[in-house]
Amino acid sequence: MSADARPGSLRIGKLIEVVTADVRHTAVGRVGAVLVMVVDSSTPAVTAALVRVGDDADEPQVTVVAERVTVDARAHGELLAPQIQAVLADGGAAPGDLAAVVAGTGPGPFTGLRAGMVTAAALGHALDIPVYGVCSLDGIGHGRPGRLLVATDARRKEIYWAVYDDGARVEGPAVDKPADVAAQVHAAAAAGDGADRYAAVLGLPVLPPLYPSARALAELAADRVRAKAPGETLTPRYLRRPDAVAPGARKPALP
């Protein structure tokens, strides 16, 4: 995948900062519009975004006010909270201005995924606002025409995957070896860092993005935000059991 300098896009790097222009005008002031914090940590792209969800039919439903994405698979716990603080500052907003939190619920590598989800849960708890979960793969497949395989890197030479038909998830999420997915899935193209990494095995043209889009996650939760739906206790989509083996017979200490 080539780097792309267009605002709102992602490229591999230490810190990618995306701030839309003129945020102070968009953050507040719209009648009926509310501010929502979007977090996703299901992939190496640690994502925090301040978005505005409007209820005006003439306006786009979701506007990204400020977004920060850092691609670093090993620092989710360190990066996320400062990024949340930064997008609030970028948007001229305070935590108390938030009306809801939207969190990607994976699937994703356990430790990083939990960092984002517990952050979202604690934010919602502390601010007494609802938290809404969205499957992180939907943040890649949402709004895409045709039949698309979305795959992110699940480590251990496996991928987390789902299939989308005109943006709607029709299979998955699941975790499997790329070759097994290739054998059973029919799609015109693929997206996600897992699709990119295993492009040769999957045999599908790879489209952007590599990682879930905060805007897409917000759009998928927008109806719940507008309806002020009750928040959820989010369940991480681990898709794998913990590595744990009950001990076998003890080795004797005597020879």
Binding site: H76, A81, Q85, T111, A115, A122, L123
Partner: peptide, 18 residues
Amino acid sequence: AGALLVGVAAAKAYALAA
């Protein structure tokens, strides 16, 4: 490591929010 991270991430969110 993974256990510590849950508490630290939560603590940061509570600190930030409040």
